[in-house]
Simulated scan of single mutants.
Amino acid sequence: MTAPTRVLIVDDDPGDRKLLRRLLNDIEIETSAEEADSASAALTPRDTTPELIFLDHLLPGTTGLALLPDLRRLYPRTAVVLMTGQGSEDTAKSAIQQGAVDYVSKKQLTAASVSRILRRGLETARMRAQLDEQRRELETFAHVLVHDLRAPVNSVRALSEIIAESVAEGDLETVTREAALVQRSARLMGDLIDSLASYIRNDRVPQRLRTRPNSIVTSALTLLEGEIGKRGARIRTELCDTAFDCDPPQVSLLVQNLVANSLRYSEASPPEITIRARLAGGWMEFEVCDNGPGVPADKRDMIFEPFRRLRGARDSSGTGLGLATCRKIVQRHGGRIWCAEPPDGRGACFRARFPMVAAPMAAARTG
């Protein structure tokens, strides 16, 4: 079962909106359409992200070209098609330069052309998003090589020199101590490489199966048994029994990363972590809350960027890719993740929403 393709029609003419709705109903692609009759209505945040926007060029007080950059910022993964009553080569050129995937005269709108525009637009947007992700991953990879691996490599080099000198002097106590530090540096490098590999690997298209939250959470907690036992953490779960479409290993990794994040930052003894899964409209919503120090309101967006970490982690070995990986997993599923206000006003609380059924294209946002 595939979810309808989400379409937003931005046009101040009721007749044109009605015509486009009728054409969408006549094509073989199942769609779910919303309407906006002004720029402000188009920029109003929605519970679901549109996958394609039909944008009229002439709007009250503005133009589609003027509105296009704002829509691209609000919905960076969404395909935008500019429409106009009168064809213009200059307008078409400007639209494509500003990020529109297509340009069409309203006189040319038919069921066949709308179907073609929809298919081509979604594919173009998907390819653009993939290229953007690959570019960001190259930047991430370069960052790791240039900055994050340098410290443990330099540490191993310096410790090796000390070990060589100590061996020559017969100082076995120093050799033993420094060898343990070399092993620690090697583990840090290994953890960093594993984290980077996980971040990049989760770029693949999810392989969705009908899955219940309990199996996902059980898998995540099994992999964290050692750290949970070491911290004496108290884990409480409140999980609904409704199945939804997802890639189970990816969503399990998301829960694992969120719980590991709570364990890393919590200075409470013992840490208390609550994991919930519940229905929220047409979404499956996971929630992980803890009794740690929480996340300042002005930092709740930036923590999802690669290598952005808050001060105060009791375990400084984190790589700064855990929440970035969570965001990527949610985006590939067409969902949403954010750092929410804790229910009781203390600790940190993360929520991730996944569509109940598979969407044809992931077009998620954070926040």
Rank of each mutant, 00 (worst) to 15 (best):
Met302Asp: 14
Leu122Asn: 11
Phe354Leu: 11
Arg365Gln: 10
Pro271Ser: 04
Met284Val: 02
Ala142Pro: 09
Leu192Ile: 02
Ser105Gln: 08
Leu192Asp: 00
Pro293Asp: 06
Arg278Ser: 11
Leu221Pro: 07
Asn257Ser: 11
Ala33Asn: 06
Gly61Asn: 01
Ala197Thr: 06
Val153Ile: 15
Leu20Asn: 00
Pro213Leu: 04
Ala363Met: 06
Ile200Asn: 03
Ala42Leu: 06
Arg157Gly: 10
Ser38Gly: 11
Glu173Lys: 09
Pro360Gly: 13
Arg150Ile: 09
His143Ile: 05
Leu68Thr: 01
Ala125Gly: 12
Arg21Trp: 01
Asp12Met: 03
Cys339Ile: 07
Pro342Glu: 07
Ile337His: 00
Arg346Leu: 13
Ser160Trp: 06
Ser317Pro: 04
Gly335His: 02
Ala125Thr: 01
Leu23Val: 03
Ala42Cys: 08
Glu267Arg: 12
Cys240Leu: 08
Ala142Val: 14
Ile337Gln: 01
Ala268Glu: 11
Asp11Lys: 01
Leu196Tyr: 00
Pro45Cys: 04
Ala243Cys: 12
Lys106Asn: 06
Gly322Met: 03
Leu159Met: 13
Thr91Asp: 12
Ser215Phe: 05
Thr31Arg: 03
Gly85Ala: 06
Gly282Ser: 10
Ser219Asp: 15
Trp338Tyr: 14
Arg351Tyr: 05
Arg308Val: 14
Ser155Asn: 15
Ser38Phe: 05
Asn214Gln: 14
Glu305Tyr: 08
Gln134Trp: 15
